[in-house]
């Protein structure tokens, strides 16, 4: 058993070191933040998610799509059915064809998805100087260091490019963007929204809130996953201990 434990620990150690080292090389590493959903027991802060949604729909949504957000999903950030209906009713979606064969727009329902700001990717690129604003529903999983990166990027703009850096037309200098030259103008300055819960909308508050919201839409199952994982692991630890006891009993009389 002792030998086995040592082997297992050594293997786990080697594996972790190996896996960490094997990640593709990255650009500037963003500073690690403390997020409420990290750790074995981490959960989302509903009020923060709602503030983040407010930032998203007021600021980000004018250029970025959110293809995996349906209004009904907003239940997950603490809205009730009536609130969801009211939020959906603020938007128009295309439906059809009707009996005359025409497409038409109607008020959105909870089962509808959040409407895209542009008709298609080409239209989005045309309206944004040739760069398509990426969809945000998976952004927190689609970049190394997910939420830390989003937070760093949104706060990583610098007014002046460092000496010697030739900025291309229509680009902005960002310390954390891979090429440092990003097409997105600084989106948040502070006081871009008036929070319904009265929180002061400083730029850092807004960035943290919208980052939390983006992490939630990327991993809406996170809370259910961790809660279930806790129960499953506790169960397995008990079962494995029992199996070990049975194994000891059965092997007691065997020299091995």
């Amino acid at each position: 058993m002792r030998k086995f434990a040592l082997t297992a620990i050594a293997a786990a150690f080697a594996l972790t070191a190996f896996a960490n080292n094997s990640k593709a090389s990255e650009g500037v590493v963003p500073p690690a933040m403390d997020w409420s959903w990290q750790g074995l027991f981490g959960t989302y802060d509903r009020a923060q998610l709602q503030r983040g949604f407010q930032v998203f729909k007021t600021v980000c949504a004018s250029c970025h799509s959110m293809r995996y957000l349906a209004f009904r999903n907003l239940e997950g950030i603490g809205f009730n059915d009536d609130q969801i209906k009211a939020i959906a009713a603020e938007y128009e979606v295309q439906d059809g064809p009707n009996d005359d064969g025409e497409m038409f727009t109607r008020t959105a329902k909870p089962s509808d998805h959040f409407p895209h700001p542009f008709a298609n990717d080409k239209a989005a690129a045309a309206a944004n100087g040739g760069a398509t604003p990426p969809d945000l529903s998976l952004m927190a999983k689609a970049r190394p260091h997910g939420p830390d990166y989003i937070h760093a990027l949104l706060t990583g703009y610098e007014e002046e490019a460092p000496a010697g850096v030739e900025m291309a037309e229509g680009k902005y200098y960002n310390h954390y963007f891979a090429s440092h030259q990003i097409s997105m103008p600084p989106p948040l300055y502070g006081d871009d929204v008036e929070y319904t819960d009265g929180t002061e909308a400083t730029i850092d508050q807004e960035v943290q809130d919208v980052t939390a919201f983006l992490n939630w839409i990327a991993e809406p199952e996170l809370e259910a996953r961790k809660a279930m994982g806790m129960k499953v692991l506790l169960f397995l630890i008990v079962l494995t201990a029992m199996l070990y006891a049975v194994k000891r009993k059965i092997w007691a009389k065997i020299e091995h």
């Binding site: 008990v238 079962l239 029992m242 199996l243 049975v246 009993k249």
Partner: peptide, 11 residues
């Protein structure tokens, strides 16, 4: 052993 095996099997 019987009890232990039985309990483990049940779990």
């Amino acid at each position: 052993r019987d009890f232990l095996t039985l309990a483990t099997t049940a779990v």
